[in-house]
Amino acid sequence: YSHPVISRNRVISQLLLTEPAPLAANQDDSTNDGSLRTLLTLCDLLNRELLVLIGWAKQIPGFSGLSLVDQMSLLQSGWMEALLVGVAWRSQGAAGEELVFAGNLRLDEAQCRAAGLADLYEALRHLTAKYKAMNLSPEEAVTLKAVALANSDADQVDCPDSLQRFQDGLHEALQEYEASRREQHRTGRLLMSLPLLRQTADRAVQAFLRLHRRRCVPLHKLLLEMLDAK
Protein backbone atom coordinates (compact mmCIF):
# COMPACT_ATOMS: atom_id res chain seq x y z
CA TYR A 1 0.00 0.00 0.00
CA SER A 2 2.98 2.32 -0.33
CA HIS A 3 1.86 5.86 -1.02
CA PRO A 4 3.86 9.08 -1.25
CA VAL A 5 1.31 11.28 0.49
CA ILE A 6 0.98 10.80 4.24
CA SER A 7 -2.64 11.04 5.24
CA ARG A 8 -3.37 13.82 7.70
CA ASN A 9 -5.90 11.65 9.45
CA ARG A 10 -4.26 10.13 12.53
CA VAL A 11 -6.08 6.80 12.35
CA ILE A 12 -5.43 6.34 8.63
CA SER A 13 -1.78 7.41 9.03
CA GLN A 14 -1.40 4.73 11.69
CA LEU A 15 -3.06 2.12 9.47
CA LEU A 16 -0.79 2.98 6.54
CA LEU A 17 2.24 2.87 8.79
CA THR A 18 1.42 -0.51 10.31
CA GLU A 19 0.28 -2.22 7.14
CA PRO A 20 2.46 -5.34 6.95
CA ALA A 21 4.74 -5.95 3.98
CA PRO A 22 3.26 -8.57 1.62
CA LEU A 23 4.34 -12.13 2.34
CA ALA A 24 5.86 -14.44 -0.24
CA ALA A 25 4.59 -17.97 -0.72
CA ASN A 26 6.85 -20.89 0.17
CA GLN A 27 6.39 -23.41 -2.62
CA ASP A 28 5.40 -26.78 -1.21
CA ASP A 29 7.47 -29.63 -2.60
CA SER A 30 6.07 -32.51 -0.56
CA THR A 31 3.96 -33.94 -3.39
CA ASN A 32 4.02 -34.40 -7.16
CA ASP A 33 0.31 -33.65 -7.39
CA GLY A 34 0.26 -30.12 -8.87
CA SER A 35 -3.16 -29.08 -7.59
CA LEU A 36 -2.45 -30.44 -4.11
CA ARG A 37 0.88 -28.60 -4.15
CA THR A 38 -0.97 -25.36 -4.97
CA LEU A 39 -3.38 -25.95 -2.10
CA LEU A 40 -0.66 -26.75 0.41
CA THR A 41 1.29 -23.67 -0.67
CA LEU A 42 -1.83 -21.53 -0.33
CA CYS A 43 -2.74 -22.93 3.09
CA ASP A 44 0.78 -22.34 4.38
CA LEU A 45 0.61 -18.75 3.12
CA LEU A 46 -2.80 -18.26 4.75
CA ASN A 47 -1.52 -19.57 8.06
CA ARG A 48 1.39 -17.11 8.05
CA GLU A 49 -0.89 -14.28 6.91
CA LEU A 50 -3.14 -15.03 9.86
CA LEU A 51 -0.25 -14.71 12.26
CA VAL A 52 0.66 -11.34 10.74
CA LEU A 53 -2.99 -10.25 10.76
CA ILE A 54 -3.31 -10.87 14.51
CA GLY A 55 -0.21 -8.75 15.14
CA TRP A 56 -1.61 -6.06 12.81
CA ALA A 57 -5.01 -6.00 14.54
CA LYS A 58 -3.36 -5.13 17.84
CA GLN A 59 -2.04 -1.95 16.25
CA ILE A 60 -5.38 -0.67 14.93
CA PRO A 61 -6.23 2.42 16.98
CA GLY A 62 -8.83 1.34 19.57
CA PHE A 63 -8.43 -2.41 19.19
CA SER A 64 -6.32 -2.89 22.31
CA GLY A 65 -8.99 -1.01 24.29
CA LEU A 66 -11.40 -3.91 23.69
CA SER A 67 -11.66 -6.78 26.13
CA LEU A 68 -9.61 -9.86 25.28
CA VAL A 69 -12.85 -11.77 24.68
CA ASP A 70 -14.03 -9.18 22.16
CA GLN A 71 -10.62 -9.05 20.44
CA MET A 72 -10.85 -12.81 19.99
CA SER A 73 -14.46 -12.66 18.77
CA LEU A 74 -13.72 -10.00 16.14
CA LEU A 75 -10.73 -11.89 14.80
CA GLN A 76 -12.60 -15.20 14.77
CA SER A 77 -15.44 -13.62 12.79
CA GLY A 78 -13.58 -11.19 10.57
CA TRP A 79 -10.16 -12.63 9.78
CA MET A 80 -11.04 -13.94 6.33
CA GLU A 81 -12.72 -10.68 5.30
CA ALA A 82 -9.63 -8.71 6.36
CA LEU A 83 -7.32 -11.09 4.48
CA LEU A 84 -9.45 -10.98 1.33
CA VAL A 85 -9.29 -7.17 1.18
CA GLY A 86 -5.56 -7.72 0.72
CA VAL A 87 -6.00 -10.36 -1.99
CA ALA A 88 -8.52 -8.20 -3.89
CA TRP A 89 -6.21 -5.18 -3.58
CA ARG A 90 -3.20 -7.09 -4.93
CA SER A 91 -5.28 -8.65 -7.72
CA GLN A 92 -6.54 -5.30 -9.08
CA GLY A 93 -3.52 -4.72 -11.26
CA ALA A 94 -2.96 -8.35 -12.22
CA ALA A 95 -2.54 -9.19 -15.85
CA GLY A 96 -5.37 -11.33 -17.13
CA GLU A 97 -7.80 -12.66 -14.59
CA GLU A 98 -5.41 -13.94 -11.96
CA LEU A 99 -5.86 -13.84 -8.22
CA VAL A 100 -2.70 -12.56 -6.56
CA PHE A 101 -2.43 -14.35 -3.22
CA ALA A 102 1.25 -13.38 -3.12
CA GLY A 103 3.69 -11.88 -5.61
CA ASN A 104 4.87 -15.44 -6.34
CA LEU A 105 1.47 -17.13 -5.98
CA ARG A 106 -0.82 -15.99 -8.79
CA LEU A 107 -3.64 -18.36 -9.64
CA ASP A 108 -5.77 -18.23 -12.76
CA GLU A 109 -9.22 -19.74 -13.18
CA ALA A 110 -7.93 -23.12 -14.40
CA GLN A 111 -5.51 -23.46 -11.49
CA CYS A 112 -8.21 -22.56 -8.98
CA ARG A 113 -10.63 -25.02 -10.55
CA ALA A 114 -8.04 -27.82 -10.47
CA ALA A 115 -7.44 -27.08 -6.78
CA GLY A 116 -11.16 -27.22 -5.98
CA LEU A 117 -11.43 -23.47 -5.57
CA ALA A 118 -13.57 -22.59 -8.61
CA ASP A 119 -16.29 -21.12 -6.41
CA LEU A 120 -13.82 -18.98 -4.50
CA TYR A 121 -12.17 -17.81 -7.73
CA GLU A 122 -15.45 -16.51 -9.10
CA ALA A 123 -16.38 -14.71 -5.87
CA LEU A 124 -12.95 -13.14 -5.48
CA ARG A 125 -12.82 -11.93 -9.09
CA HIS A 126 -16.20 -10.28 -8.54
CA LEU A 127 -14.90 -8.50 -5.42
CA THR A 128 -11.66 -7.51 -7.16
CA ALA A 129 -13.56 -6.10 -10.15
CA LYS A 130 -15.70 -4.03 -7.81
CA TYR A 131 -12.71 -2.49 -6.03
CA LYS A 132 -10.90 -1.96 -9.32
CA ALA A 133 -13.90 -0.10 -10.74
CA MET A 134 -13.98 2.07 -7.60
CA ASN A 135 -10.27 2.82 -8.01
CA LEU A 136 -9.63 2.19 -4.34
CA SER A 137 -6.86 4.30 -2.79
CA PRO A 138 -4.30 2.80 -0.37
CA GLU A 139 -5.93 4.81 2.45
CA GLU A 140 -9.31 3.32 1.61
CA ALA A 141 -7.93 -0.21 1.34
CA VAL A 142 -6.26 -0.17 4.76
CA THR A 143 -9.29 1.46 6.39
CA LEU A 144 -11.68 -1.00 4.75
CA LYS A 145 -9.60 -3.86 6.12
CA ALA A 146 -9.86 -2.46 9.65
CA VAL A 147 -13.59 -1.73 9.21
CA ALA A 148 -14.19 -5.31 8.03
CA LEU A 149 -12.66 -6.59 11.24
CA ALA A 150 -14.47 -4.10 13.47
CA ASN A 151 -17.80 -4.80 11.75
CA SER A 152 -17.55 -8.57 11.78
CA ASP A 153 -20.79 -9.06 13.75
CA ALA A 154 -19.43 -11.47 16.32
CA ASP A 155 -22.13 -13.49 18.07
CA GLN A 156 -21.42 -12.42 21.60
CA VAL A 157 -20.04 -9.03 22.52
CA ASP A 158 -18.54 -8.61 25.95
CA CYS A 159 -18.47 -4.80 25.99
CA PRO A 160 -20.77 -3.29 23.31
CA ASP A 161 -19.86 0.32 24.20
CA SER A 162 -16.14 -0.20 23.59
CA LEU A 163 -16.86 -1.99 20.33
CA GLN A 164 -19.15 0.84 19.22
CA ARG A 165 -16.43 3.41 19.98
CA PHE A 166 -13.92 1.32 18.03
CA GLN A 167 -16.26 1.16 15.01
CA ASP A 168 -17.15 4.86 15.27
CA GLY A 169 -13.46 5.82 15.33
CA LEU A 170 -12.80 3.99 12.06
CA HIS A 171 -15.98 5.30 10.46
CA GLU A 172 -15.07 8.88 11.41
CA ALA A 173 -11.58 8.43 10.00
CA LEU A 174 -12.99 7.25 6.69
CA GLN A 175 -15.52 10.08 6.56
CA GLU A 176 -12.87 12.67 7.36
CA TYR A 177 -10.57 11.27 4.68
CA GLU A 178 -13.31 11.30 2.04
CA ALA A 179 -14.44 14.79 3.06
CA SER A 180 -10.83 16.02 2.61
CA ARG A 181 -10.96 14.64 -0.94
CA ARG A 182 -14.40 16.20 -1.47
CA GLU A 183 -15.81 12.73 -2.17
CA GLN A 184 -19.11 12.83 -0.36
CA HIS A 185 -20.41 9.49 -1.67
CA ARG A 186 -17.28 7.38 -1.20
CA THR A 187 -17.79 6.40 2.43
CA GLY A 188 -21.25 5.06 1.69
CA ARG A 189 -20.04 3.26 -1.42
CA LEU A 190 -17.23 1.59 0.49
CA LEU A 191 -19.53 0.50 3.29
CA MET A 192 -21.96 -0.82 0.68
CA SER A 193 -19.20 -3.16 -0.53
CA LEU A 194 -19.11 -4.92 2.86
CA PRO A 195 -21.93 -7.40 2.10
CA LEU A 196 -20.05 -8.67 -0.97
CA LEU A 197 -16.88 -8.93 1.11
CA ARG A 198 -18.73 -10.93 3.80
CA GLN A 199 -20.26 -13.21 1.19
CA THR A 200 -16.88 -13.80 -0.46
CA ALA A 201 -15.23 -14.56 2.88
CA ASP A 202 -18.00 -17.04 3.75
CA ARG A 203 -17.40 -18.82 0.47
CA ALA A 204 -13.66 -18.90 1.13
CA VAL A 205 -14.14 -20.40 4.59
CA GLN A 206 -16.50 -23.03 3.22
CA ALA A 207 -14.06 -23.88 0.43
CA PHE A 208 -11.16 -24.46 2.83
CA LEU A 209 -13.28 -26.46 5.27
CA ARG A 210 -14.54 -28.59 2.38
CA LEU A 211 -11.02 -29.25 1.16
CA HIS A 212 -9.89 -30.18 4.64
CA ARG A 213 -12.76 -32.61 5.15
CA ARG A 214 -13.17 -34.14 1.70
CA ARG A 215 -9.63 -34.18 0.38
CA CYS A 216 -8.01 -34.45 3.77
CA VAL A 217 -5.78 -31.48 3.00
CA PRO A 218 -3.72 -30.99 6.16
CA LEU A 219 -3.97 -27.52 7.65
CA HIS A 220 -1.67 -25.71 10.04
CA LYS A 221 -2.91 -25.38 13.62
CA LEU A 222 -3.65 -21.65 13.63
CA LEU A 223 -5.56 -21.79 10.32
CA LEU A 224 -7.51 -24.81 11.51
CA GLU A 225 -8.34 -23.12 14.80
CA MET A 226 -9.64 -20.04 13.00
CA LEU A 227 -11.64 -22.09 10.49
CA ASP A 228 -13.10 -24.09 13.37
CA ALA A 229 -14.27 -20.86 15.00
CA LYS A 230 -16.50 -20.43 11.95
Partner: peptide, 20 residues
Protein backbone atom coordinates in the same frame (compact mmCIF):
# COMPACT_ATOMS: atom_id res chain seq x y z
CA UNK B 1 -10.78 -20.15 25.52
CA UNK B 2 -9.15 -23.59 25.65
CA UNK B 3 -10.46 -24.36 22.16
CA UNK B 4 -8.91 -21.20 20.73
CA UNK B 5 -5.71 -21.27 22.62
CA UNK B 6 -3.33 -20.17 19.85
CA UNK B 7 -5.32 -17.00 19.16
CA UNK B 8 -5.60 -16.39 22.89
CA UNK B 9 -1.85 -16.79 23.34
CA UNK B 10 -1.03 -14.53 20.39
CA UNK B 11 -3.34 -11.76 21.62
CA UNK B 12 -1.94 -11.94 25.11
CA UNK B 13 1.49 -11.39 23.60
CA UNK B 14 2.73 -14.46 25.36
CA UNK B 15 6.50 -14.71 25.48
CA UNK B 16 6.30 -18.49 25.46
CA UNK B 17 6.67 -19.97 21.97
CA UNK B 18 3.40 -20.55 20.15
CA UNK B 19 3.10 -23.79 18.23
CA UNK B 20 1.47 -22.86 14.95
Amino acid sequence: KEKHKILHQLLQNSTSPVDL
